[in-house]
Amino acid sequence: MPETLISDLNRADVFSSLKEGQFELILGAFSARLASQSPELVDFLFDVYRDVPANLELQEVTDIALNVRPPNVFRKYLRPQVIPDPGFKVPAVPLPKKMAPLSLEMGMNLSVALKCCRFLTFHAGAVANENGGVLISGASGSGKSTLTTALMQEGYRLFSDEFGLLSLDKAEINPYPRPVSLKGNSISVVRDMVGAEWVSKSIMNTPKGEIAYRRARRSDIEQANVPAPVKLILFPSFAENISPRAKKLTKAETIMRLIESATNYKLLGEAAYKALTDMVVGAEAYDITYGDTEECMQMVRDFAGEAGL
């Protein structure tokens, strides 16, 4: 069956499908069944997810089932709010209805982080070119989304800015090219880098401050089923006005850091241990501290070259 992209669909039909809880989003490693009564979500899907395949009626069993809904009847009408409801209890705060897109993104992230067992899941950005992949592991604010975007500008495919999804049977990461989440100062950096047309309108005054999304390119989405072997692992940390510096990490240091970064390592047990150690054997890893994206990218280009990317 030929794929229908969201941009090919009719807005009213999409909203109707969302209201009936039948809307199916098909993107790389995961498919999602979405439900919502929020028109804000329709606008968001037509903007940021416009090149993603979708169905108005469920075609298959999905990996994720997410309802972006009011937390209670009261908040449906009075100062309306929404929460992400993935069918299990999640630590998500109710948000004003106009922030439904943020609730959707949080819900999809939590569904992958807390319930995904097919992959060893790292909290990491991931990109790849034809020679292999780069995993960018770091806490929120470390600059992994900015680096992910900068590498996309160098011709790398977007896999994800949030999850490194490592296959359990081979040392390959799998794409899940959802939009890149940008916060605070990184929004203007990325707008300057890629052009304002590639970045969504900002959502202001969220619990994480200003948030905007850098849309995945159609080429990222078209190759969303093509995995890549990991060749380079970066652990960035961003600090204002600091000279860039880097330290090559031993395999042991790399493994210890990635165990900390994995959301389901303990759950997957021996399979996760084998997948992780196999991956690290074939990759070089660096700890990077930087205060300027371009200076950082100069180092990353050198490391990528040494890693055969």
């Binding site: 031993t250 395999k251 042991a252 493994i255 047990g269 021996e270 241990y273 084998k274 690290v280």
Partner: peptide, 22 residues
């Protein structure tokens, strides 16, 4: 357990406990 050496250290996965040790 499963044991793998990296440089001068060994990563050991203990199957019964589900824990990884350096």
């Amino acid at each position: 357990f499963v044991i793998r050496q990296f440089e001068d250290v060994y990563f050991v996965f203990c199957k019964s406990a589900g824990t990884t040790h350096l």
